[in-house]
Design a protein around this nucleic acid. Structure first.
Lengths: 343, 343
DNA sequence: TTTGTTTGTGCAATCGATTGCATAGATAAT
DNA sequence: ATTATCTATGCAATCGATTGCACAAACAAA
């Protein structure tokens, strides 16, 4: 096409008989440059099809306009939606996001953070791996004076901004809803993982029972990995135990799905015999039969919020603002799987 | 923590009484540097906790180790899996991927490509928006001498490497499978969009019918946007038409899902009365009732392939290799929704 | 010993934009 | 008219790593 080779501010400067400094200032809207010169520079830049070299700019200014984003997984609906939310905000401000997955593995996390620092990102947005108990790599980010925002999977060990949803509230709403539907023997699927979000869901479950005068029964709580198979297994055990139960609240949609399969195989009617509620609003929950009641975490919104916290921190880096913690409110999406009666 | 301020090759050089050039060469494994010096440099670099500044390196060398990835959407299962595949390969080679969505909008596409060029990415991997008919922005990438790899949504207008799956073959397999199950009145849901992949699926459907001696009936083909609602609508029309039909092959899982809902509402048994096959292997297809037969596109694999093509092109930039087109073979995932008889 | 190679480093320019400091010219103040 | 104050721009260093070219020292060949 065109000559298509590198046009620099020097080319613009030469053409206008001014210096590169002036061009640079004009392009950046420096108030000390006259309107006339600015106009001329902009016009020439356009004519020459000038494209600023962000690399050079980054080297000199120390700002790459890159955000490193560390996620447990890229292609899970929850995380990919968060990524989308972050990108929306970041891109609109001229920033790029580089995403890398940890696959819940500490070494990967460390490697990724190191790569981010080497790429000289302007800061990091991250969700911590399920089994991560060491946070030195995150402290390195903070030690560099870079903003760090944690989302969903956070830790009190790090003194930094974070955004989470109110898992307690979500679980509480889910459980209360089941009680309102007349259920009194509500099983709960959870995990032993030392990760806050599941503890909170468990707490919400227990408190909702208490608040509504439903007796908590330890034998109705099942712990596993919250995958499809875990849900199947728990449900089989539940049926085999002979214990009465009229609902299951699973801390994950996948385990809830496993429960649905086993219940149907065993001739239980949902929700008539057993009401079912999951957690996370995985895309598939709308398409099960019956559709699964679940808790929406608003992942896109969470991503946007994380990005906003990030830019807050970035823009006030000098003043060392105190870390902010944002708690988003979840929403109970009521579908057929839990609707025993018309409401 | 540590002094944590910028350690450069000059610091290493000073400590060892050599020059930065030598340090740079040592770190890059230049064969002209003695083993002894290399050892010393590596050791000192480690002690000083040196981290190469990729920005400086990028400016001088002209290689940012960044790949720009343009996708129609970030948080759809198909695309997020492709992203994952690309990242896998790219990260393992020390490259970062910056992803931006176009949301099927030409202006967004152009803006994103421009941003990529400004960020001085080493090349672009892209999937074209559904309605994009102009390709000047992609030509700019090629004009810069940068590698461009297209995946899934490609165009013959661009002379560059691409990776697609064999949509024709996928549709052919799906249709043939339905015929084997004894179906002879097979409806097809497709779209008018001028996008290759749907034409290919249509072609596969038609050819499979012909090859198996099943009469093609124009009135069994429905065109829309292939969303859930389209599937519902088509199915209602199909039922209302009174035409006989014993199967539906939808070019999208969502439309197939819509069909499943309407069929069930109207008392049709799946697969006994109507067998159903979708396309794309959306995660939800495993969890419908009955589970939906569909065509797997191996998106992660597609991402890996795209990345490999990219690096092929990148590493042989001088020799201007002829563009390669890779066609992946899809897989028919047979589930209950189409299984009329034990096989 | 002289000449020719090889090996290992140093020198200095360079990538392109940014920015602190200096300054010419214009304008205002005295 | 002289001095003080702006305004708009130029100068030159800088960010940190890379790289073509030069060259001293060591070694080999003659």
């Amino acid at each position: 096409m065109e000559n298509s080779k590198k046009v620099t501010i020097h080319d613009i400067a030469e053409k206008l008989n001014i210096t590169a400094s002036t061009v640079s200032r004009a392009l950046n809207g420096n108030p000390r440059i006259s309107e006339r010169t600015k106009k001329a520079v902009l016009k020439t830049a356009d004519e020459l099809n000038y494209e600023p070299n962000q690399v050079a700019s980054a080297l000199r200014s120390g700002r790459t306009q890159l955000i490193g984003m560390l996620v447990p997984s890229i292609n899970r609906a929850f995380f990919s939606s968060i990524i989308r939310g972050v990108e929306e905000v970041a891109n609109s401000l001229g920033y790029h996001v580089i995403v890398s997955p940890s696959y819940e593995n500490l070494e990967n996390e460390e490697r990724v953070i190191k790569a981010f620092l080497s790429a000289r990102v302007d800061g990091v947005i991250a969700s911590i791996g399920k089994s991560t108990q060491q946070f030195e790599h995150f402290n390195q980010v903070l030690g560099r004076g870079l903003p760090l925002v944690l989302f969903d999977r956070t830790t009190p060990m790090l003194q930094t901004s974070q955004v989470v949803i109110d898992d307690y509230q979500g679980a509480y709403m889910a459980t209360a809803h089941l009680i309102e539907q007349g259920c009194t023997r509500i099983a709960h699927f959870t995990t032993e993982r030392k990760i806050n979000i599941y503890k909170e869901r468990y707490r919400g479950y227990v408190n909702a029972l208490e608040d509504h005068g439903v007796t908590f029964d330890d034998s109705l709580v099942f712990s596993g990995n919250l995958q499809l198979e875990d849900g199947q297994l728990h449900t089989k055990q539940l049926i085999a135990s002979g214990d009465a139960f009229d609902a299951i609240f699973s801390a994950s949609d996948y385990a809830a799905m496993g429960a649905m399969q086993v219940l149907k195989e065993n001739g239980f009617s949902i929700p008539k015999d057993v009401a079912l509620v999951g957690f996370l609003n995985e895309p598939f929950t709308a398409f099960t039969d019956p559709p699964l009641t679940t808790v929406n975490q608003f992942p896109i919104e969470m991503g946007r919020t994380a990005a906003n916290l990030f830019f807050n921190a970035l823009n006030s880096e000098q003043q060392k603002v105190t870390p902010k913690k944002t708690v988003l409110q979840p929403e109970l999406i009521i579908r057929q799987s839990s609707l025993k009666q018309e409401s």
